[in-house]
Amino acid sequence: MQWLVEKAKNGEPTLQLNGVFIYSKYRPKEDAFRWLNAEINSEAKSYVLIGLGLGYHLNALVSQCKNKTVTVYYFDKHEYELFLAHNTDHWWNQGNVHIVHDLNQTELQDNVQILLPNAWIKGIGQRHPLFSILETIKINQLSLKRDSSKMEENFTCNMNLDDEIIQVKKQRSIGCLVAAGPSLNDTIHWLKKYQYQVDIFVVGAVLKKMLGNGITPKAAVLSDANDETIPQFQDSNFEGELYYLCTANSKTVAQHGSKRYILFQQGYQLAEEEAKKRNIPLIETGGSVGTTAFSLLEYLGYETIVLFGQDLGFAGNQTHAVDSTSGRDASNDIFLRNIEANDGSTIHTTSMFQVFWYWYNQKMDKTKVNVFNTAIKGAKIKNVPLINEEEFVQLIAKNQ
Rank of each mutant, 00 (worst) to 15 (best):
A330Q: 08
E272L: 08
K276H: 14
S295H: 09
A315D: 08
T285V: 12
A330P: 01
T291S: 11
E273A: 13
V322D: 12
S288Q: 01
Y268L: 12
K277Q: 13
L312G: 01
Y302A: 03
S295N: 12
N279G: 05
H320S: 02
S288R: 10
L336S: 09
R278K: 15
L270T: 11
G327Q: 05
G286Y: 04
A315R: 06
F335E: 13
F308P: 05
G316P: 02
E274N: 06
Q269F: 14
D311M: 02
A271Y: 03
F335C: 09
R328Y: 14
S326F: 04
A315Q: 11
T285C: 11
N338S: 15
G287V: 04
T291Q: 06
E274F: 07
K277V: 14
A293K: 00
Y299C: 09
Q310P: 01
T319K: 02
L336A: 04
L300K: 12
I334V: 13
L270S: 13
G290L: 03
L282F: 10
Q266P: 02
D311C: 07
D311V: 00
F308T: 02
Y268N: 04
F335N: 15
L297W: 00
N332A: 12
L300E: 03
E298W: 09
L296E: 03
A293V: 05
S324A: 10
D329A: 07
E298C: 02
F335I: 02
G313T: 00
G290N: 06
S288T: 13
L297I: 06
S288P: 07
D329Y: 11
F335R: 15
I280A: 11
G316W: 07
R337C: 05
G327I: 08
A321K: 00
L282T: 11
T325P: 01
G309H: 00
S288H: 01
E274Q: 14
F335V: 07
G290W: 00
T325Q: 15
T291P: 00
R328I: 06
A330T: 01
T291F: 10
P281E: 09
L296S: 02
P281N: 09
T285D: 07
I305D: 00
T292Q: 07
I334M: 14
Q269C: 14
E274Y: 14
D323R: 13
I305C: 04
G287C: 08
T319V: 07
V322W: 04
G290P: 05
Q269W: 11
Q318A: 11
E272C: 11
G290S: 15
G267W: 14
L312F: 12
L282V: 12
Q269H: 14
V322C: 09
R328H: 14
R337S: 12
L312A: 03
T325I: 09
N317S: 04
R278I: 06
N332S: 15
A315K: 11
N338A: 10
K277G: 01
I334E: 14
E274R: 15
D311Q: 05
L307D: 01
G327F: 05
I280T: 13
I280E: 08
L312Q: 06
I334H: 13
V306H: 00
A321T: 12
S326M: 10
G301C: 09
E303A: 12
Q310D: 04
T292R: 03
F308A: 12
S331T: 12
N317Q: 10
L297N: 02
D323S: 12
E273F: 10
G287M: 04
G287Q: 06
T292G: 07
T291Y: 05
E273Q: 15
H320D: 06
Y302M: 08
S326Q: 08
A271T: 13
R337G: 05
S324I: 06
